[in-house]
Design a protein around this nucleic acid. Structure first.
Lengths: 145, 145
DNA sequence: GGATATTGGTTGGAAATGTAACCAACAAGC
DNA sequence: GCTTGTTGGTTACATTTCCAACCAATATCC
């Protein structure tokens, strides 16, 4: 069409998107097929399991998720009794969320899967490449530009 | 919660997702705010601009997009007169799509923006890191595991 | 020359997401 | 104590996306 050689295949947002989609979809069967969870739900569950009980807004901040997404994910997890909420007495707007026994079991299972999955992905890269990749991704994830 | 130290922050699908979202959102204002386009539309437009006229299914294959997304994106672009379709006589199911003059102008503009945007992103990395990053992303984008 | 696939593409309805408006609990100003 | 603002969180509605069914044109089989 024109003389230049800009390839969308080399456009970083596009490459990142493809890689994210391919790897994310590969892992999704673990939480989707096995537990009927959505990605946001898995993410919320993970944060509670990894960092312990916290409020919804703390999850928003840590996971960089919008509060409506967290609200809905928590509602779904709660309805399936994977998380429980306890309203705080000193400020009744806040509710501390935590995993129930079944939530903790799922967390343990999925975390183990995630570790294995991550290892399989990293196996496509050399150790040094993986290190650089993570470092680049962390920088690119910062907003701005 | 338990004794291990698996960090979701190091889980590759998660890191990829964050980086893809951050960079993708940064660029979206160019096609969204300026032309009211959706990401899929920009992608379709790009493919037609970069690789020349082709059928919808060719776009599906090249861009790795589902046919319903392409169908709707084409419909939207067509209604704004940025692409035109020409039914092929030898097989009337097929229609060759191509950019109109206005579509080509948008392509030229957005391509130029994309190049600049990509440069700004790459500026956060050394030349060698950028090379390795692209190489890793290409490998991770391959399905399977 | 029909029945039966197959293919290119569209459409309809359910699920998910984004945005903004909303509500209830608390905090501050006066 | 009563208006005014903030904050944590939910809800409503519009927009997107996903999946499956669909339609029309061609190819295939007999």
């Amino acid at each position: 069409m024109d003389g230049d050689d800009f390839e969308i295949a080399d456009f970083l947002p596009y490459m990142l998107n493809r890689a994210a989609e391919a790897t994310g979809q590969g892992f999704s069967r673990h939480y989707k097929d096995r537990y009927g969870m959505l990605r946001t739900e898995w993410r919320v569950l993970f944060h509670l399991g990894r960092y312990g009980p916290m409020t919804a807004s703390a999850i928003c901040a840590r996971a960089d998720l919008h509060k409506t997404k967290v609200s809905r994910a928590v509602a779904a997890l709660e309805s399936r009794r994977h998380v429980a909420r306890e309203v705080q007495e000193e400020d009744r707007r806040n509710a501390t969320l935590c995993l129930t026994r079944s939530g903790a079991a799922i967390y343990a299972d999925l975390t183990e899967e995630a570790r294995r999955y991550d290892d399989r992905l990293a196996a496509r890269l050399t150790r040094e490449e993986a290190r650089i990749l993570r470092s680049c991704l962390a920088r690119l994830a910062e907003r701005g530009t």
